[in-house]
């Protein structure tokens, strides 16, 4: 007669064969460097100017005049500076117009940031999306002592990881 211990051992050996699984693995790797890109476009070619005395007296604002597209895999900050302290005349006028008559702000925000020739933070990533698009508003104050003419200025945008 088979003892009850024999049954227990038999059950112990058979049970693993009822449920069965096998494993195998594949290993791999993703190398992820810091990746940031900034694209700046000017929908209206940024030809700005005063058209009458009213505008000249009160300054002029251009809404949504600059588009920024930031692509990144990490938090970022966009800064802006002017290429020079002053506008350069493109029509042989002698007066100098300071670059800080130009201010910028993200559309929808209230505080304008005057341009200087040092990078000034303008936008921070406020979400973790890879692609973010923004528009900027531009304000031009009155250049009181400027001669009539044409002036040019470079705006330099930069983006870096936070």
């Amino acid at each position: 007669m088979i003892s009850r211990y024999t049954y227990i051992i038999l059950i112990s050996l058979l049970l693993p064969l009822i449920g069965y699984s096998q494993n195998a693995t594949v290993q791999g790797n993703v190398s992820m460097p810091s990746l940031i890109d900034l694209e700046v476009t000017y929908p209206n070619n940024m030809q700005i100017g005063f058209e009458d005395l009213e505008e000249f007296a009160h300054g002029k604002e251009y809404r949504n005049c600059i588009n920024l597209s930031v692509k990144s895999n990490c938090p970022w900050v966009v800064s802006v500076k002017s290429g020079n302290n002053a506008f350069k005349s493109t029509s042989n006028v002698r007066t100098s117009v300071s670059s800080n008559i130009i201010s910028l702000k993200p559309s929808g925000k209230s505080a304008y940031i005057p341009l200087t020739n040092s990078p000034t933070p303008l936008l921070f990533s406020d979400n973790d999306d890879v692609v973010n698009n923004y528009t900027l508003d531009l304000k031009m104050d009155t250049p009181w002592n400027a001669e009539g003419g044409q002036y040019g200025l470079n705006l330099i945008f930069s983006v870096s990881a936070q």
Binding site: S21, Q22, N23, A24, T25, V26, Q27, G28, N29, V30, S31, M32, P33, S34, L35, S72, N73, C74, P75, D128, D129, V130, V131
Partner: peptide
């Protein structure tokens, strides 16, 4: 679509039969 911090990501895919 979302940020993934710069790093080296090693992974293992496990197959269970």
């Amino acid at each position: 679509t979302k940020h993934v911090r710069p790093d080296n990501y090693n992974f293992t895919i496990k197959f269970t039969m």
